[in-house]
Design a protein around this nucleic acid. Structure first.
Lengths: 296, 296
DNA sequence: GATCATTACGAGCCGCGTAATCATT
DNA sequence: AATGATTACGCGGCTCGTAATGATC
């Protein structure tokens, strides 16, 4: 019946993230003591130990609580931001968030039309990794977002639910495995993803599906990351593929023209690279126009 | 940066639901004064009026806040319930929630197998309306739920997101319009849902898709409810159809055998009656067994 | 012995209830 | 006039910081 205290939740989340009471206190502007008391109160309230101390880390129950805590805090903030936006002046800004692979010529063309219709607005495009974009939309930091990812055909992307958002499918492309030029699998048809679970994979969490997603999609273990690539630059990633540092999964049109890189379409399971437009409520204006242009 | 107070959110939600400060105070165990102060504090905090008084009702900003408040409160409770369940003894109970149309022979057979494997557990089946079932799963009131509803083929049902739940498709059936016997449309193929927007519809929110859902699916206005039917009894609803009180949308197998009722398949848009199994994390035991049996 | 979490305790603030006031029908 | 929302005000509790204590490397 009674609810959990979000402040304690935030402290708890911070403590687990930093694995330290004192550092969490520093980040949150509390004393060590206050943090300790908040955690103690939360544990007493829930009737379970949530953290083990020295070294600091979550218990099983703590891990479970974390699955709730982070989305809850995001949404709590989104709620405030959402009504604040409604009260504030309808700004003429237009901020579009996008994952790296979602930025394409269609977007450029649509932005051009928006510029013509609303010459006074300065459209801003900001690139984010997939996992945080939905939260940015919910808090109003960006007005619209183009998010890409791996999905079964005509299935929606698995986005974290952080508020009342609308998502519309914009694009679906076949996916292919990017291979070094001359690789024996190049161009081979009928390739099953699970056949490649033992290969060396490039883990580029800001650009391509992570190993978890691949395992889930293929239904097998494996996909052990050989090299980790942090960053949103596609060319760098393709260069690593070309030099044999590992394979990666990309939309077919993206790998098709790349120099030094061959590719093979993935036949099973049936997967597509999907792009979705995500937004909250859009008042009539440049943002709404852009949304209409993008879904066509 | 700072978060919204859930207690105020709960009070706000209660006030709007009851459209009265005093009644909300009674329900929540506060004085009128406390409720008034909480609302005032919330409005001051967010910097906007949320309610109009006399008669009491939400403003535009208030309506927006409500979209966040209710799911937030559900999930806040779910978080507590979720870790509590983890701490408590692994009870041998097995509570299955289901929407009325989701209870079928497959379920009966699966429950039989569970009984045989775990003779000591007493399976309980509880029937709920669609809209509250996901929340019951999140709070652990039921271990698993079978939820049915209208969807595009192989699309998931639009469930409110109230926690980290797993959903698996269990069944998809064609949908048909139930008609009084001898109705001119009976058996006609190629029927478009939008053609029927002007007809008299039975509104049975506990059993069938509401008018909103129909409008969204058909992409047209209309589907004005002629008669409202509260309850989860299918036979009563079919009797109303047979006596000409309105049309309704049901899975084809359900209407096929009903006396006094004819039907016509819906051809456009492509729709199915989908049943999904929804659950949180399932420790090995009767619940996990039942889940496995149901998805096959 | 140094770092880091916990406990003890007092001070300030916040939120509730009582009660009076104001507004609306 | 009566119902119902708001304001005034004082008390109680809760939470934080300071400071001392305890545990772990």
């Amino acid at each position: 019946m009674t609810t959990v205290d979000p402040q304690q939740l935030r402290t708890f989340a911070t403590v687990t993230r930093l694995a330290s009471f004192s550092e969490a206190a520093r980040e949150l502007g509390y004393t060590q003591s206050a943090v300790s008391q908040q955690i103690a109160a939360l544990e007493a309230d829930l009737g379970t130990a949530l953290l083990v101390r020295r070294p600091v880390g979550p218990t099983v129950a703590g891990r479970r609580l974390l699955e709730h805590a982070v989305p809850l805090l995001v949404r709590l903030e989104a709620a405030r931001a959402d009504v604040a936006r409604l009260a504030g002046s309808p700004s003429a800004r237009l901020v579009l968030g996008a994952t790296p692979l979602a930025v394409g010529v269609a977007l450029g063309r649509a932005l051009g039309e928006v510029r013509r219709a609303y010459p006074q607005v300065e459209p801003v495009v900001r690139v984010f990794a997939q996992d945080v974009l939905a939260a940015r939309v919910a808090t109003g930091e960006v007005d619209l977002a183009l998010i890409d990812g791996l999905a079964a055909p005509s299935d929606p992307l698995p986005l974290p639910e952080v508020g009342p958002l609308t998502t519309v499918a914009v694009d679906e492309r076949p996916v292919a495995v990017a291979l070094p030029a001359g690789h024996p699998l190049a161009g081979r048809a009928g390739l099953a993803l699970s056949d490649l679970s033992a290969a060396r994979w490039l883990d580029a969490p800001d650009l391509t599906p992570t190993a978890d997603r691949l395992r889930a999609a293929a239904g097998t273990d494996g996909f052990r990351p050989a090299t980790r690539y942090r960053g949103t630059d596609l060319h760098g990633l393709l260069a690593l593929v070309a030099t044999g540092h590992g394979l990666t999964l990309l939309p077919e049109p993206v790998v098709a023209g790349a120099p030094g890189v061959d590719h093979a379409p993935v036949a099973a399971p049936r997967l597509v690279h999907r792009t979705e437009l995500v937004h909250g409520s859009l008042p009539e204006g440049p943002a709404a126009l852009l949304a209409r242009l993008l879904v066509d």
